[in-house]
Nucleic acid binder design. Structure first.
Lengths: 232, 232
DNA sequence: GTAGGGCGAATTGGATCCAATGTACAATAT
DNA sequence: ATATTGTACATTGGATCCAATTCGCCCTAC
């Protein structure tokens, strides 16, 4: 229990949060060159915390750094998008399997509340966060914290593209809502195997849609996705 | 192929490499308080690159940092060790499955060479690296770079304990050697399902041994593994 | 004797300054 | 005209300096 008003966040963390937001929202597009002074001046801080933030973001895979050349918003290839979603499916099913025997009625009610909230949400970003919250609520009882951290890292990398897709197809929201409701129902039924099957289908259908969208986008604008890394 | 004598590494990277080595080897034991000037003075550099290195190590999960309190070598609970190995099994089997159809004779020969080298190696650290190299050689054809990165991150966290185990039981080396040879044989046979099964058994038996060892160590010295994080 | 408060040393976080390196442009030679 | 080289500028990496916060110790009061 800490008094938030007194204990303010380190500047470096604030900077990394802002930069992460800028990258996520597309304000800093993929491939963009990031200069330390520019960021420092924009945010009214020195270059030191900016450097720290860049280190953090590099570790998160959101940017790449080259010696004496600077930082660039990470590009991501179509193959990597595909791989990420395959990995997500693998990890999420693993989490769900391990969570199922430990999911309580209270967990289900929390999840249900999130589902209802998501129906009433029009803001795309908020809805996405609720989507993630729903899944995490069902995974948390597994108590596999490391796996959930790893999953969070993956989500961080692909959120950009997922966000883009959600923004243009709100119909997916209803589809996802129905599927979430179905998942809750089948969890209550007690059929664990069927629940995992349904969850896998849900995740993979979602993945397919995102990949389809990114593929189409890549066709329309080949520059948005680099086929090869590091073209000098 | 780079001329190492001309293009020298950034100091920050050198520092993080050294610290990583110190943590891995146990020279910096779990829970140890790390002070920036101490490291800086020891290595003859300023605090700036040390700070960067600490950031990197925190992202890798090897240390934790608390505002104005400093950095501490990460403690890891028995539950986390168990989880890590379950995750490793999941990821490695996934990689192996996807690699199998693409493994060429050349890959097998490289793997075989590593197996032979490992037999002739007495140094525990070198042997461990060869062990990792063997597995990675078999996973690389999957071209799932993100998954391999994730796996590397996991290996980084548990290497400390694995290393400890290897140091005291060289008999495991022979067992592992035989199993590696078996895996190569069954890959050549073309039975992919059997190959994955064997790989899973190999990984899990290895995991069991490490966990058993860590459990015993924890019993003998309860302080080495904290049951609860953050006891103030 | 013990609990509480305050002062000082130690340590981290952030800002500023200097050095090393890469890039771009221009001048010159072929 | 083009290629090459040299030089100036822009940007990052590293060192030093100052501010903010924590922890330990001692002193005091009850």
């Amino acid at each position: 229990m800490q008094t938030a008003s007194i204990n303010l966040e380190p500047v470096a963390k604030q900077v990394s949060d802002v930069l992460r937001q800028w990258i996520m929202s597309g304000h800093l597009p993929a491939g963009e060159h990031i200069r330390q002074d520019a960021i420092a001046e924009d945010l009214g801080v020195s270059r030191a915390p900016v450097r720290e933030a860049l280190l953090t973001l590099e570790a998160e895979g959101l940017i790449t750094r080259q010696k004496y050349k600077g930082a660039f918003v990470a590009e991501i290839s179509l193959a990597e998008v595909r791989e990420t979603y395959k990995l997500r499916s693998l990890l999420e099913c693993f989490l769900f399997e391990n969570a199922l025997p430990r999911i309580t009625e209270k967990d289900l009610q929390r999840a249900e509340k999130i589902v209802h909230e998501s129906l009433a949400t029009t803001n795309s970003d908020d809805w996405m966060q609720l989507n993630i919250d729903f899944h995490m609520t069902l995974y948390e009882p597994s108590q596999l914290t490391l796996t959930m951290q790893t999953l969070n890292g993956l989500l961080l990398r692909t959120d950009r593209y997922f966000r883009l897709q959600q923004a243009i197809s709100p119909s997916v929201q209803h589809k996802s809502h129905d599927e979430h409701q179905e998942i809750l129902d089948i969890i209550r039924s007690g059929d664990h195997e069927a629940a995992v099957r349904l969850m896998r289908e849900h995740i993979e259908s979602n993945s397919d849609e995102v990949i389809q969208f990114v593929e189409d986008g890549a066709k329309a604008d080949p520059a948005s996705l680099p086929p090869d890394p590091d073209t000098p």
